[in-house]
Write a protein that binds this DNA or RNA. Sequence first.
DNA 1: TCTTGATGATTCAATGTCGAACCATCCACA
DNA 2: TGTGGATGGTTCGACATTGAATCATCAAGA
Lengths: 149, 149
Amino acid sequence: MDENSQSLKTYTKLIRAAETALSCTQKHLSPQDLTLSQFGVLEALHHLGPLCQKELGQKILKSSGNITTVIDNLERRGLVRRERSSVDRRYVTVKLSSTGASLIQEVFPGVENLITEGLSCLSELEQDILAASCKKLGRAMEESPFSPK
Amino acid sequence: MDENSQSLKTYTKLIRAAETALSCTQKHLSPQDLTLSQFGVLEALHHLGPLCQKELGQKILKSSGNITTVIDNLERRGLVRRERSSVDRRYVTVKLSSTGASLIQEVFPGVENLITEGLSCLSELEQDILAASCKKLGRAMEESPFSPK
DNA sequence: TCTTGATGATTCAATGTCGAACCATCCACA
DNA sequence: TGTGGATGGTTCGACATTGAATCATCAAGA
């Protein structure tokens, strides 16, 4: 098989696997009315503690404008609080509220199980290799002339 | 490392690699004002010939409602034509127009190069393994209780 | 102190996307 | 023949996302 065509097929399989996984996760979260982005934010705050919006944007790979609306929606539901940083007033640090904390603690294990079960079709070694290849690939594409910013 | 945490990390790397790749492709296409979905449709028509909208939806993993608007936009630009099937009038077969055909022929090689170059950080063997793992994973997640339909 | 450039956040318009309701068409079966 | 269920496509409302423009704030240097 020629090299281009092989690469395309690999690329397609990667994309589709990721989209299938995301779609499953999304469906798993929909009963709680959580978007993937909202879940990503809650999960980041849960595991890393309070973060400013720029950091959140980098964590979940979304534009700054989008982060604002995601936080808006989380704040409206009382899952999260905004606080202007006193040391540098440009920054807004986002913190989990207590209801936000309990929601993510309640929801996260289910997502973890879903993912763990999905990935259980691969051996530990296979998972390591997959992770390593994805990491390499991610880096390589970031260096492309069309890198995401 | 415990098994859950390993799976999560692998999952995250997979998702991020895919999103980085998609984002690069998107940026590559934006000068032609083509969406990833629009490109996906043109590419499918280019390589597989005329298809009905349901088939297109399966190819690019989008909802039927969305396919309608994607085709609307492509048709408005004259890149594509709709034809009611005469044998079963429920079906709408979508065909590339001549300008659509030349656009995809002009654009596709660049995308192919972008992807091939990105994936060139992996050996052929590594690519094969990556593809196989993604395929397995995709199948496994489709059997999950939260499978995408 | 003032100005300039950089940076984080917000706003806004345009668009993509989904899911549900709906319409048209076909098919199987009585 | 005709009726009911299945199927492909469209419409519509709700929301996510982006990118550009804008605002507020900070830091560095004249």
